[in-house]
């Protein structure tokens, strides 16, 4: 038996194309900004107030400003156009790219697989995440471990900056790590590791409690994914503007 003969790709009458388009434009703009700042290689450290942008933390190569290298300069200077963030960006990018929310976002927005529910995708063949390269999405939890470590370093940077007093930059760095922590904790892998992998919740009350708390955050994973991503860029922009002398930091306590 055949399917009903309906030629139209979709019969949806709502603006189904708007969410994928918005997602695509949002991700594109953020990618352009992140790429520009990564390869700019400057204005990442405010010496006066010890502000270090999260995009350059930890700064681990020889070309890093010594005061900004809280954990030492382990690697030699990078050749050509490469800058210190290229050491850490693969881990941060890997965490976001393999994130279950972002997968939904870019599969829909960038690959149209599918562009929206009940809208036919343009591809003639589909194997999903069964083979290379998309089978690598299964490595999400390892990027989660790496991102958690980088988050701890970001928290350390934010706390260290309070050593010079309190300014608007301190508040921004603090909100940034708060959002990053919420996004990282709300991750599906974190939920699984905390308690989701158990078959027997009643035998592990502490892990069950952790799972229920992380599940509450997990319900807002999409919101946290976007707010933390946008706020990282805003934090970086603020540090860049102060570091370049374009604006001065608003100080509350010096």
């Amino acid at each position: 038996m055949a399917r009903a003969e309906i030629a139209a790709r979709t019969l949806r009458t709502d603006r189904w194309w708007l969410p994928p388009l918005t997602t695509f434009v949002g991700l594109l703009l953020i990618s352009i900004y992140a790429a520009f700042r990564t390869f700019q290689g400057d204005f990442y450290w405010v010496d006066q107030y010890h502000y270090l942008t999260p995009m350059y933390s930890p700064c681990l190569t020889e070309e890093c400003i010594p005061a900004a290298s809280h954990f030492g300069r382990w690697f030699p200077a990078l050749p050509g156009f490469l800058t210190p963030p290229v050491i850490i960006i693969p881990f941060l990018l890997g965490f976001r790219i393999t994130c279950y929310y972002y997968r939904k976002a870019y599969y829909r927005a960038a690959w149209a697989s599918p562009p929206a529910c009940a809208v036919a995708e343009p591809h003639s063949k589909y194997t999903g995440e069964t083979r290379f390269p998309l089978i690598a999405q299964n490595l999400h939890r390892y990027f989660f471990y790496a991102a958690s470590l980088l988050l701890l370093i970001n928290i350390y940077d934010a706390v260290l900056a309070f050593g010079t007093g309190v300014g608007l930059g301190n508040i921004i760095l603090l909100v940034n790590v708060g959002l990053l922590a919420a996004y990282t904790l709300s991750c599906h892998s974190c939920r699984h590791i905390a308690g989701g992998r158990l078959k027997h919740f009643s035998k592990h009350p502490v892990r069950y409690w952790m799972w229920t708390q992380i599940s509450k955050l997990n319900n807002r994973h999409m919101l946290l994914a976007w707010t933390s991503l946008i706020f990282v860029c805003l934090t970086d922009l603020y540090v860049a503007l102060v570091a370049s002398g374009t604006i001065s930091d608003l100080r509350f306590i010096n």
Binding site: R103, Y107, C117, G128
Partner: peptide, 8 residues
């Protein structure tokens, strides 16, 4: 593995 979690 075919599921690409697009949540439809």
């Amino acid at each position: 593995g075919y599921c690409n979690i697009t949540k439809c």
